[in-house]
């Protein structure tokens, strides 16, 4: 496993560069490299590069957030949205969209919504200084439902804007604001580096809290830190690109199947795999239908789902432990 992990870690960056290069070079408009980097392709290049960069950062953020939440909750179904971040961000974004605010304000509101929702979930789950896993999961789900209801109520009052909100809920990697791309990259690097630095604690945490405590870890403090990191990663990704499902759930599992569960390698490998996956998805959403663009969420589900199911059947033994 370790050798496989090292091989993965060595090859994945090359893979990422390759798909990113393909994403920049290819698109619905066919241009030769000479044209693309010349005067004729300047506008196109200027449009493609931020999209590819955004896809990579969002893919990495969501995957690492998935790793964190799966470790905290020790639940294979945990994803970046399980603790209410998605509906919190959705409500924030919808309110900003309905108030006709600009791109930055919508992103800021989504980020604030995600952070606020996860904070509320965290506070609700706190019982006598501890955070029981079940309470955390349940309060996450219930807060998610409540905010989801508020989101659809808000949209229902202003159905003329349904289109905007729907598109946001399906996820989009059309980079409309270059500054946002930078912001997501900064959050992604900080969050991933944090998760990697504390990867030993993540290992201990996924053993179970009692064992972790015996081995000298304070599980409550570790959970709080990882919770914060996961929310930061999710909030930033959601703010820039809406709700892109599937990545945060599936990529960590996929990588775990290949390289094993050790977090020191799982964190960077998941980040890379998530980035590769979403760069490919962005490319497909831009090119699959001639002349049109498809919502990113549709592509992640269609492309990732069958592949994951195939892997699941093939490696049933490994997967079910």
């Amino acid at each position: 496993m370790r050798r496989r992990a090292d091989l993965f870690l060595a090859l994945a960056p090359l893979g990422l560069l390759a798909v990113a290069a393909a994403g920049v070079m290819l698109g619905p408009e066919r241009l030769s490299p000479g044209e693309l980097f010349g005067e004729a392709g300047r506008n196109i290049l200027e449009n493609r590069v931020p999209r590819v960069l955004l896809a990579a950062a969002v893919g990495a953020s969501l995957s690492v957030a998935g790793v964190l939440f799966q470790a905290i909750l020790r639940n294979p179904l945990a994803d970046p949205y399980v603790l209410g971040a998605s509906s919190g961000a959705g409500l924030g974004a919808a309110l900003a969209i309905l108030a006709l605010l600009g791109t930055w304000a919508v992103a800021g509101a989504a980020f604030a919504g995600a952070m606020a929702a996860t904070f509320v979930v965290y506070r609700l789950a706190l019982v006598g200084g501890r955070i029981p896993r079940m309470t955390l999961l349940l309060s996450g789900v219930v807060v998610g439902y409540l905010l989801g209801g508020a989101l659809f109520f808000t949209v229902n009052l202003n159905r003329g804007r349904l289109n905007d909100v729907m598109w946001w809920l399906m996820g989009s990697l059309q980079a409309t604001e270059p500054g946002l791309v930078t912001a997501v990259w900064v959050c992604m690097v900080l969050g991933t580096a944090g998760a990697w630095l504390f990867s030993r604690d993540l290992d201990l945490l996924s053993l179970g809290e009692e064992q972790a405590e015996h081995l000298g870890l304070s599980p409550e403090r570790a959970k709080t830190v990882f919770f914060g990191l996961g929310s930061l990663l999710t909030g930033a990704a959601v703010a820039a690109s809406g709700l892109i499902g599937f990545v945060g759930l599936v990529v960590p599992h996929l990588v775990r199947l290949i390289i094993g569960p050790g977090h020191r390698r799982l964190v960077p490998c998941s980040a890379l795999a998530g980035a590769i996956f979403l760069v490919i998805v962005e490319f497909v959403s831009r090119t699959a239908l001639p002349g049109e663009e498809i919502p990113v969420g549709v592509v992640t589900a269609f492309a990732g789902g069958p592949f994951f199911l195939w892997l699941l059947r093939r490696q049933r033994k490994v997967f079910w432990g």
């Binding site: 698109g27 619905p28 408009e29 506008n43 196109i44 449009n47 493609r48 059309q174 831009r286 090119t287 001639p290 002349g291 049109e292 663009e293």
Partner: peptide
């Protein structure tokens, strides 16, 4: 500019619109 890119009301390929200038 989008007459042949799609039908009805739709989301066009952004770079195609840009390229057609």
């Amino acid at each position: 500019v989008a007459a042949d890119l799609g039908k009805g009301y739709f989301a066009p390929a952004v770079e195609s619109v840009i390229r057609r200038d």
